[in-house]
């Protein structure tokens, strides 16, 4: 089975993807992660305005038989939360890199410490 790993993004070992959009970064979970979990039935996200520290858990993704924490790949205040996935958690399965995004963080920090697509692909093999 092959999983989508878009270029132009960075990845965390804990299976989050990170995409810079001007002064914010958008965070979600990877295609591999959603597939491992199976049908996602519930997503818990923090409120906008909270400030996250790199490496701390900020949300939970649940399938029927498994739960997974989602970790902040960088530090910064939460600029936006994708409320759509709270009502329709299946979006995370259907479009993990698009409509299934989770939060946006305000940060200028470098993303260089995170995995590039090749490194992430190696990790999940």
């Amino acid at each position: 089975m092959t999983f989508e790993i878009p270029a132009q993004r960075r990845y965390a070992e804990s299976h989050e993807w990170i995409l810079r959009r001007d002064d914010v970064v958008r965070v979600g979970i990877t295609d591999f992660a959603q597939d491992e979990l199976g049908d996602i039935v519930f997503v818990e996200l923090p409120a906008a305005g909270e400030t996250l520290e790199e490496g701390t858990e900020f949300g939970v993704v649940e399938s029927i038989k498994a739960i997974s924490d989602v970790y902040a790949p960088v530090s910064g205040p939460i600029a936006a939360v994708n409320e759509a996935i709270l009502d329709r958690p299946e979006l995370v399965n259907e479009d993990p890199y698009g409509e299934g995004w989770m939060i946006e963080l305000e940060t200028d920090d470098s993303l260089d410490h995170l995995l590039d697509p090749d490194q992430y692909e190696e990790q999940i093999q």
Binding site: F42, E62, S63, I64, K65, A66, I67
Partner: peptide, 9 residues
């Protein structure tokens, strides 16, 4: 909603 319960969480 068994993910609330001890055998999963």
């Amino acid at each position: 909603l068994q993910t609330r319960e001890q055998h999963i969480r």
